[in-house]
Design a protein around this nucleic acid. Structure first.
Lengths: 119, 119
DNA sequence: ATTAGTTTGCAACTCAGTTGCATAAACTTT
DNA sequence: AAAGTTTATGCAACTGAGTTGCAAACTAAT
């Protein structure tokens, strides 16, 4: 099961949600897929993206990724096709926080229209 | 009802969720509050923040705010107290998107520990 | 083969968000 | 002021994502 899920994740060009994943199988159990994604995430194979659509999406990490704030990238949600892209080449810019605020993680989601959906 | 909600929102130093709001009333209807927040948001009195905690939070907009991408600010979620701050002084940095990607909105949430909760 | 550990599947629950419908309140028009 | 219209509120109920517990199936190790 997990191998199948990994295969599917590898094929994906964009991040996919649990329900997306579910629909790639004829017969599957939501919970199994759910737990699979959780373990993959724990093992830092994939990272999760909360793009505000209500369903968390998942995408493969670059190799040796530790998911530290410095190595996080920007995500893009297309408001037309609802696809979520990992903009791997666009790092999240440095933010100067107020004094005594420490940083552990950043989530940055840009919403707009992707190149496929424009005009 | 709406006036009461507006009062509460004005007192708040941080963004609050629907359930937070609900608990400020002895007797209240979730749906009424929900719809109140929705209308406030439509009228650009408040803005919503999806900080990834599972519940959308709301905070007053600065006057004359049109909620355009340029005037958006960074939000901060404290992982200890779970409070969500509007970092009104910290604008969201400009992001150069891939060609043919257009931008409509940005959500940027920094997670960490706030000054009250540190050490 | 027996045991222990892991993975899967089912049922069921929580919680946020949402909708439809009926009543109540406020505002309009005559 | 009465009748009619619009707007706001409250109740019930549903959806969908995420989650947990438990038992059955599978795997590996002695």
């Amino acid at each position: 099961m997990r191998e199948l899920v990994l295969d599917i994740l590898t094929e994906q060009k964009m991040a996919i949600s649990l329900s997306d994943l579910e629909q790639k199988f004829h017969k599957s159990d939501r919970v199994t897929l759910y737990r699979t994604l959780k373990t993959f995430e724990e093992k830092k194979l994939i990272h999760s993206i909360d793009d505000g659509t209500g369903a968390v999406k998942y995408a493969l990490c670059k190799e040796s990724c530790q998911c530290h704030p410095e190595e996080l990238h920007v995500h893009f949600l297309c408001l037309k096709c609802q696809h979520t892209f990992c903009l791997n080449d666009i790092p999240i810019p440095f933010i100067k926080l107020p004094v005594n605020f420490s940083i552990e993680n950043i989530n940055m989601v840009v919403k707009g229209v992707c190149s496929n959906c424009k005009d």
